[in-house]
Design a protein around this nucleic acid. Sequence first.
DNA 1: GAAACCACCTAAACCGGTTAAGGCCCCGGT
DNA 2: ACCGGGGCCTTAACCGGTTTAGGTGGTTTC
Lengths: 348, 348
Amino acid sequence: MSARKPTISDVASAAGVSKGLVSFALNDKPGVAVDTRDRILAVAKDLGWRPSLSARSLSTRTSFALGLVIRRAAEVIGADPFFPSFIAGIESVLSEEGRALVLSVVPDQEAELSTYRTLAADKRVDGVFLTDLRQDDKRFALIEELDLPAVALGHPASSVCFPFVELDDTSGIQAAVEHLVSLGHTRIGHVAGDPAMIHGGRRRESFADAMTNAGLDSSLVIETNFSVSQGADATRRLLDGPHPPTAIVFANDPMAIAGLGVAHQRGLRVPADLSITGFDGTDISAYVFPALTTITSDPVEWGRVAARTLLDQIATGAAPTVALPPAQLLIRDSTAPPPPPAAEVAHR
Amino acid sequence: MSARKPTISDVASAAGVSKGLVSFALNDKPGVAVDTRDRILAVAKDLGWRPSLSARSLSTRTSFALGLVIRRAAEVIGADPFFPSFIAGIESVLSEEGRALVLSVVPDQEAELSTYRTLAADKRVDGVFLTDLRQDDKRFALIEELDLPAVALGHPASSVCFPFVELDDTSGIQAAVEHLVSLGHTRIGHVAGDPAMIHGGRRRESFADAMTNAGLDSSLVIETNFSVSQGADATRRLLDGPHPPTAIVFANDPMAIAGLGVAHQRGLRVPADLSITGFDGTDISAYVFPALTTITSDPVEWGRVAARTLLDQIATGAAPTVALPPAQLLIRDSTAPPPPPAAEVAHR
DNA sequence: GAAACCACCTAAACCGGTTAAGGCCCCGGT
DNA sequence: ACCGGGGCCTTAACCGGTTTAGGTGGTTTC
């Protein structure tokens, strides 16, 4: 019993063939007699042989790993429940394929770009996921320059040379606005995400569109960086305005929860005095009081599809773009008809 | 201008030396004349040479990557804010060292163990982080069997052959109980985490100890798997008991927030009717209403120290165990004196 | 019956580094 | 004058796979 793990040469000599043939046999290449192939496979299995990743990487110039670079400020990183679920989805695909996920968390754009550069230069990964797409995203040019296979999450603003997996969140926002309108709300505010991020900007636009379609004023919008603290702050500013809204649509659940806190703090009852909707459908949104009306997507599935698309892109060089089922409005207890407009009546 | 990236041989011929000497020069090995070394370094820089990771991995049998395997049920994965911050801490160390983090997310123990096996067999990583330690953890034996450098987060129950980075959370729990006792509470409940996990079990023990020290009944404990839904459920069961508590100590913030929701739902005012404390000091805990009294630790720092310890362990084979500053009680608005015991007075 | 062809296999180069073994030269000691 | 020992450098083996070129032997083709 040798302590060392067997190499391809051990398998070759045990099977009485050359190591080249072993390689052919194990990679299902043509030119190997059927019974020889079977013998080789049997010997390999018997010896418990596993190909050496680094040797394979060296000769094939592939790393059997995919890369995910997350650029988030320390302030936001903990609050967002998207990534853990998304990563779990990626993993469910990769683990079956014997591939690994290389993760980087970086604070700013400079570090982000140099991380992609290093990943590519070191051939540490065979392809990368692009999340949190931005308006005028510098990564697009970089990916092309590095000739790195990639898949993006969401619909890039400009046309790009790689596939993307998009999830329509506009119809969810629109459904939320229509829901609030049908309840009788006319002054609806929006705590938007980062306008530099595509999904932040698009949710804001859908909000404006839906409001305009309903013939309502769409200017009650405050932009944030998606962080809890800015969500709370934005809520305060909306409520402090001259004509405070009777409903607020938040761009994510953590901010909506913070908004809930601000409302409670001011003695506003939700939903009697103020309706609130979130976005994401996080677990916790069902357990706050009142349970949050929110817009749910499926980050795990998103991860799965993105991983499959990226593998496809790496293999074929031309994977098709995929559209996921749109985000759905989930009506719970944080939305209700607005309070009777006592103040305005008195004002007349 | 060649399209191919330069290899060590290119550097060698450009510098007029053998490739072996280039290798020596670049790894600061002795036996290279100073001016020769300088010349080689200059040429390498000039050519933009970067050593090939896979070639290096093959000959040195190291992968220049560390592994993190997270075993969490899909249900819990999104809610826990610990990992994103912890990973950010790891990254801040690894990125300087040119190393990468290989992340796996697995659903159960079987997948967890086989993931460690694969990581080791493929030499995909040089060492691993062990999080969420369990009572009687099967990974300890596996790590030893695989001869894989490791560092654990928290204090293992049994003695182990690798270092660990521990953070005292017991004094935080005790401080929380003492704080509640000093406010006048006598019936204090605890929504505990998973008792199979060391930190879950230990927080529970510290709770019991602190209660006993105060001369109070320490039996109002309900175990959970740390998930939001079980946190809400446990809160309901505590409040439905014959002598409901006037304060509840939760084992993490998400469960505490769910508990807050349950209290509101029942018309209990927090903190007037019920005091609540959380654990983790997540961002959002400051923005719920009322702002959560909680126990804060520093997961980013934990990640940094764990990464440095693991690198040290890999390099020297005997890194020292580290104790981080203990978790601190952060008093906010969710704790107050208990309501006057009207019912009990009437009962006499 | 020679040429062409095919199926099956071997030998050896190659990927790009690391490293053990050894060669050369110059110096100091006896 | 000879030997020993560094300092500096080269050669070549090695890590463990993949892949190309080439070599059998046997069958088909005209």
